[in-house]
Design a protein around this nucleic acid. Structure first.
Lengths: 338, 338
DNA sequence: ATCTAATTTTAGATCGATCTATTTATTAAA
DNA sequence: TTTAATAAATAGATCGATCTAAAATTAGAT
């Protein structure tokens, strides 16, 4: 195995100098740097991060723990986190808990053992501040995204779900809809409750009875959502519009509308949530609440970077607002309101 | 920072013994292990992987480099790789190149520096064996998945794209379709060429003129695919069925069919490729060629694990066949063949 | 009780970087 | 030319595990 010492010998300098070159230190003269770099190439030197990490007080690695990497929201988030952290020379290690508490515990442990400089995490349901205590104990900063643990003294980046969902419903109300269904999530009950709260806020603000609006929950699959939408549309309440928990459910609901022989955006209006990349590419292009997951990722990255620099900063929370992206799945109701 | 030595002192044993306990060695007596474990908990010991990796000849980490983590094919692949490698005590580090050669080069370097025990990679276009030479030089095994570099002496796990696409077209031919369109990929030209080759094989095997079958390529988005499908269907060739490069394109094509006021699976038959999770959940459920990405992931994991154990094994290639999953987007043609 | 063999435990060297403190070389000012 | 100040290079200790080889303990056989 070729080490710093081998490079040093070939370049005719000391081990310490080669080390400085590795780290792009300004302390080394240009001429020397060139010489060392040539020597490195000549002997085929490969930097040993384990050795560096052992000695150094920080590892320039950051952990990102998320519940479902296949979900576009989280891959966008990842991109945003990297936008900020990669230019700072930090490597982001991604890990997927798949919504399993056990897997999350395992990953938390592993990242602790590799001495990450910090952690960005979207916790699985049931996580408590206690689960993250080992990090606080040895002073590794944590930034939460999207999901927040009660009473945990961590930085946070996320969105205002309640207000966002309220805006979605208000958009439909403004178009003249009076019978609006809500297709919620059977998968994330906690977030679902908050978003449904926003939905009710909107309905009540127009003096309509929130209780009489038809509601259903489903899994985040096209098929489930299609069935749910069909059920709602053909129910006695006969909604002319649907607020959907997220874009995937809205997609499924669109398919349900097609299956009923109706035209989405004409016979039935639909609003999604998240504005994942494919929303704009949907047919018809999906009206949805944009949460700018990539931007949230940038926020999280920035919060973490700041705290790594200064652990004693006051706890900071960045809550963005979801904004309406009006496209072609929403329009005034076709059938007259009853 | 609390180290092995601190634990050893509290437990009243030597550093070496504590180290053995950390690694679940059978060399240590049950009574001693208990004692040490209690001590670890008492002093709040956290294992230091960097220190271990420095001394030890392997790190129990494996790299997985893929071009697009948001693509369900690759998240399934990841799951499969972990299925095999996690039980062996190896941590899988995921990294996304986003189809960028530059990012890939950077990630390859980083993983080399962290001394992964092995690498599973789906290379971006343009990668040569030379790019992977540093790995071979220091004896880190590589397993390729899905994509293969010419003349590279690495293990490989993937599928027979040509045969798979041939089977897709044959399925439509068997149903009686005589005018079949092909919607290819504008993103992965190399794979596209292979799959289109399979399509032609099928058509020619029935003594039909492959050249007269309408063809188009598009990006992997719903919108693009919808437009492409509409173009093909309303072209002079008037295909009654479409073979799609992958499921995403098939989804978009379905939406295009709906937009034309036609019914997918009735007026126009569609076959996808990949059988991602949402294919079965699509409306109507999508007929597609299943590649069992998770299984391929298991293959890759197994190949890598074997080679880590024995570098001198002969190069091994596992090419699976895609199998038809007939669902509801394919049926005999409605309009009589011209 | 003695000897052998098997089982546990351990001391001390070692992995390859970085850090601190110091020395050496270079430049600018007197 | 000398001195002071700055820039560049270095020696040697150090990080916290694992490894090797040897020592201590225990068990089994005689």
């Amino acid at each position: 195995m070729v080490t710093l010492l081998d490079v040093a010998k070939v370049a005719g300098v000391s081990r310490a100098t080669v080390s400085l070159v590795c780290r792009d230190s300004p302390l080394v003269a240009e001429k020397t740097r060139k010489k060392v770099e040539r020597a490195m190439a000549e002997v085929g030197y490969v930097y040993n991060r384990s050795a560096a990490n052992l000695r150094s007080s920080f590892t320039n690695t950051v952990g990102l723990i998320i519940p479902d990497i296949a979900n576009p929201v989280y891959s966008d988030l990842l991109t945003g986190v990297e936008d900020v952290l990669t230019p700072l020379g930090k490597a982001v290690f991604i890990a997927d808990t798949n919504e399993s508490e056990e897997r999350q515990a395992h990953l938390l442990q592993r990242m602790l053992e590799m001495r990450v400089d910090g952690l960005v995490i979207s916790t699985v349901g049931g996580t408590t501040a206690e689960d993250l205590a080992p990090y606080t104990r040895i002073g590794v900063p944590i930034t939460q995204v999207f999901r927040m643990i009660e009473d945990a003294p961590f930085d946070y980046a996320g969105i205002n779900n309640r207000l966002g969902c309220r805006r979605a419903a208000e958009h439909l109300l403004d178009l003249g809809h009076r019978h609006i269904g809500f297709i919620g999530s059977a998968v994330s009950p906690s977030v679902n409750q908050v978003r449904y709260g926003g939905f009710c806020d909107a309905v009540r603000s127009r003096d309509l009875p929130a209780e009489s609006m038809p509601t259903i929950t489903c899994k985040h699959t096209f098929g489930d959502a299609a069935v749910a939408a069909k059920k709602l549309i053909s129910s006695a309440a006969a909604p002319t519009a649907l607020v959907c928990f997220n874009d995937i459910i809205a997609f499924g609901a669109t398919l349900g509308v097609y299956e009923l022989g109706l035209t989405p955006g004409l016979d039935v209006s639909l609003v999604g949530f998240d504005d994942i990349e494919s929303a704009a590419n949907w047919r018809p292009p999906l009206t949805t609440m944009s949460i700018e997951a990539r931007q949230i990722g940038r926020h999280a990255g920035t919060l973490l970077a700041n705290r790594i620099k200064d652990l004693d900063l006051p706890v900071c929370s960045m809550v963005s607002e979801a904004v309406l992206k009006q496209r072609e799945t929403t329009a005034p109701p076709r059938r007259a309101a009853v």
